[in-house]
């Protein structure tokens, strides 16, 4: 861990020297803007790092919102400007729609989404009674298959993203608080190992970009800490909603690597570890990025 910190410091020093030499604008997270949604909901975009980070991200963790440009940041400040709310609305409609052989809707068992789903997003992924690590998508599909008698949705299907956006919204503003100890510990350790593994022909780990180099640029991409507290989110580059695992697939592919599948054991473990790196940041679902 010390190595990572010193690398980060070296990079920062090099960047500072470069700025002095060329007059390039400093590439740190923006400091002159605040995320207030609909003029009333204040969402903190930085927080104290959790103890389990062991100093890996220095003394502050930052939302990816702080690394995006002015226009993108503005889109997330108003739910009418945030394209994700089309999908949230579709998810809310699906919540009340009966389906499957049992003719049940989500609401038939869970009642009002605002009450029953409050806080769920902030605590996931988590270990079930059976000792399995589940993401939000697993819980949705389990309900569909075992309670509704309906077909499971694809992990990255439009219906699934609609539903995870609608459910995630109910935790907006609540701090990410995933369990990393007890039965979650072995999964978390595997996720951590994966985070630092250099995959693919380009031999890049998550940490190479999102720990050692956040704040720096790869071409015009402003590297963030890779926090996932805003998913599913609207990605302007994809002109659509993107799930956590979908982004993981994209990152591993970009290392010229063989990706893992969305929903795989590996990506659920990675999701737990990455979520834990953002512990304390409020859930922003549904966020906007580019």
């Amino acid at each position: 861990m010390l190595l990572h910190r010193s690398l980060k410091t070296t990079t920062a020093a090099a960047a500072a020297a470069l700025i002095l030499a060329t007059g390039t604008v400093l590439a740190d997270p923006v400091t002159d803007d605040e995320l207030v949604v609909n003029g009333e909901l204040e969402l903190a975009t930085e927080a104290e790092p959790a103890a389990h980070l062991d100093g890996a991200l220095g003394d502050r963790i930052y939302s990816g919102w702080r690394f995006r440009d002015t226009e993108t940041r503005a889109m997330q400040k108003d739910d009418f400007d945030n394209p994700m709310f089309l999908f949230v609305d579709a998810g809310l409609e699906a919540w009340d729609t009966a389906e499957g052989t049992e003719g049940k809707s989500c609401a038939d068992c869970h009642g009002a989404i605002e009450d029953s789903m409050k806080g769920l997003r902030a605590s996931l992924p988590k270990v079930t009674d059976k000792g399995e690590l589940w993401s939000l998508e697993n819980f949705v599909n389990d309900c569909r298959e075992t309670r509704m008698g309906a077909e499971a949705w694809g992990w990255n299907s439009q219906q699934m993203k609609n539903m995870t956006a609608a459910i995630g919204l109910q935790s907006r503003g609540m701090p990410v608080d995933v369990a990393v100890d007890g039965p979650a510990a072995p999964f978390w350790e595997k996720g951590k190992e994966m985070y630092y593994t250099r995959f693919g022909q380009l031999e890049m780990s998550c940490a190479n970009c999102h720990e050692d180099n956040y704040g720096n640029y790869i071409r015009s991409d402003h590297l963030s800490q890779g926090q996932i507290n805003g998913f599913p989110l609207y990605r302007l580059k994809d002109q659509g909603p993107v799930s956590i695992h979908q982004r993981f697939v994209g990152c591993v592919r970009d290392t010229r690597g063989e990706t893992f599948q969305a929903g795989s054991q590996e990506f659920r473990e990675l999701e737990l570890y990455v979520a834990s790196r953002g512990a304390g940041l409020p859930v922003e679902t549904p966020a906007v990025r580019h």
């Binding site: 693919g200 591993v252 592919r253 970009d254 290392t255 690597g257 063989e258």
Partner: peptide, 8 residues
């Protein structure tokens, strides 16, 4: 390499 893929 660890899990190399075919280009991108």
């Amino acid at each position: 390499f660890i899990r190399p893929g075919v280009a991108y």
